[in-house]
Design a protein around this nucleic acid. Structure first.
Length: 469
DNA sequence: TTCGACTTCAC
DNA sequence: TGAAGTCGA
């Protein structure tokens, strides 16, 4: 039997349309699928880590369905992979590319070390539609504004999807695997069964079902309804994309097909997919996007660091119902509606003048669809330090937004027990989920607003006038 | 160099 | 309607 290949899975936990999997199969070698819980992955937020565990469980089952296994190992990636190569006599390692700075540094070290030992070390595309360096402006160089990027990407060909293998040849002797349960990936996430029960199911099958349901039932109304925060009008596909349970290519082709069929929501859906793409384009070309102001003239802005108001924001106690509803939804479900994210982020950075990185960190802790690029771009876009062609200081008014996008107050009532006489299960579940130390009580009066909205707006505008160099 | 255009707004 | 910078062809 030929020497096996190690297939290092990371954010591509699927069998269908997986280029590196197809490439490994094409070699004719036995394949040893492995997931490495390395220090970089252990640093994930509580919700993302919990969600990753669910993704891994689903993917391991899917691999068993094609006669294979998922080998689980813990430790620094290079160390683990070198040991596995020795144990299995593998010819080398293949993986799908990642584009954030931490992963790129890690992967370069791994690739160089494996190659130095004469082993095969290959990275493949698959996490984005277009490799970030292949999309350039007319002058050469990365795009910095979404619309021109969209116009460029819209016209580009996208290769067809690859079929999922029906059988994945394995080695004669399988190496040992850790048990997923022993990794305790849920231990940071002590929010009770009520939280878990509400989470979307995980895995490639669930992702494909979700896409089919969306395309069938909701895509047509997507452009018109997606901003209404109380409705289930969004695709809900972000967390599947985050773990690679579905490929962006699959979404792209489904969207294009719908467009050709005249589906009125299809183009908006494709645009949203390309926003994710744009975020990774930016992160690849500006690796510090998650740490530094993208526009350097914001470095002088007098952001407040973490503070007592920010803590109230995290706990959903700002006294702005829409903001609090959003924060509570995220804490309980690991999800937050897209528009609610912008409103909550604007409130923290503008009305509370708090550094966008404080908000970014909390989202990283709480979101099951945590994506470093999308969040870095999104937070900087709201803060004003990021890519945004509009020059004015963007300040959302949470009350105005509530009137527009939650006109009947359904979303606010769903998540804020203090606002209703007979709070529902969602609103009450928040009080079960929060740490006892927060002292939350559904019978307590709803808090007064932290700051008058008009005064907060004026203060932010004043800070902008003074603060930017 | 010029010039049209720029996700999601607030008042 | 404001207030106004720079991206990209």
């Amino acid at each position: 039997m030929a020497e096996p290949l190690i297939l290092w899975f990371r954010r591509d936990l699927r069998l269908g349309d997986n280029p590196v999997l197809a490439a490994a199969l094409a070699t004719g070698r036995p394949v040893v699928p492995v997931f490495v819980l390395d220090p970089e992955t252990e640093a994930l937020g509580a919700a993302a880590k919990q969600r990753l565990q669910m993704a891994l469980a689903a993917f391991a089952a899917a691999l068993q369905g094609v006669g294979s296994r998922l080998i689980l190992r813990r430790g620094p990636a290079l160390e683990v992979l070198e040991r596995l190569v020795e144990e299995t006599g593998a010819a080398g390692v293949m993986w799908s590319r990642a584009y954030d700075a931490t992963s790129r540094v890690r992967d370069q070290v791994v690739k160089a070390a494996l190659k130095a030992r004469g082993l095969l070390a290959e990275s493949h595309a698959g996490f984005v539609l277009h490799e970030p360096w292949t999309v350039e402006t007319g002058q050469g160089g990365p795009y910095r504004v979404f619309t021109p990027y969209w116009r460029a990407v819209r016209a580009l060909p996208v290769a067809p999807e690859l079929p999922a293998p029906v059988h994945l040849p394995g080695p004669e002797r399988w190496p040992d695997s850790a048990a997923l349960a022993d990794w305790n990936m849920t231990c940071d996430m002590q929010r009770g069964a009520v939280v878990l029960a509400r989470w979307q199911s995980s895995g490639e099958g669930a992702a494909l079902d979700r896409l089919a349901g969306f395309a069938e039932d909701r895509m047509a109304a997507y452009a018109a309804r997606r901003d209404f925060v109380a409705e289930d009008a969004t695709s809900g596909l972000s967390e599947h994309l985050t773990y690679g349970e579905i490929s962006p290519r699959t979404l792209w082709h489904r969207g294009r097909r719908a467009m050709e069929e005249g589906n009125p929501g299809a183009e908006t859906f494709l645009k949203e997919l390309v926003w994710r793409e744009f975020a990774w384009h930016l992160m690849y070309h500006y690796p510090e996007l998650g740490q530094d102001n993208w526009k350097a003239d914001w470095n002088a802005f007098p952001w407040r660091g973490d503070n007592a108001d920010a803590e109230k924001w995290r706990r959903g106690l700002t006294g702005e119902p829409l903001v609090d509803a959003a924060m509570r939804e995220m804490f309980v479900t690991g999800r937050m509606h897209n528009r609610a994210r912008m409103i909550a982020a604007s409130y923290l950075t503008k009305h509370l003048l708090t550094d966008w990185r404080v908000g970014l960190d909390w989202f990283a802790e709480c979101l099951t669809d945590w994506d470093p690029a999308a969040n870095a771009m999104g937070w900087q876009w709201v803060a004003g330090s990021g890519p945004d062609a509009s020059p004015y200081f963007r300040i959302f008014n949470p009350a105005t937004q509530a009137e527009k996008f939650d006109p009947e107050g359904r979303y606010r009532r769903r998540w804020i027990a203090e606002m209703t006489r007979n709070p529902g299960a969602e609103a009450l579940s928040y009080f079960d989920a929060v740490p006892k130390s927060w002292g939350m009580d559904p019978a307590a009066p709803y808090p007064m607003p932290l700051i008058d909205l008009a005064a907060g707006r004026e203060r932010a505008l004043e800070a902008l006038k003074q603060g930017k160099s």
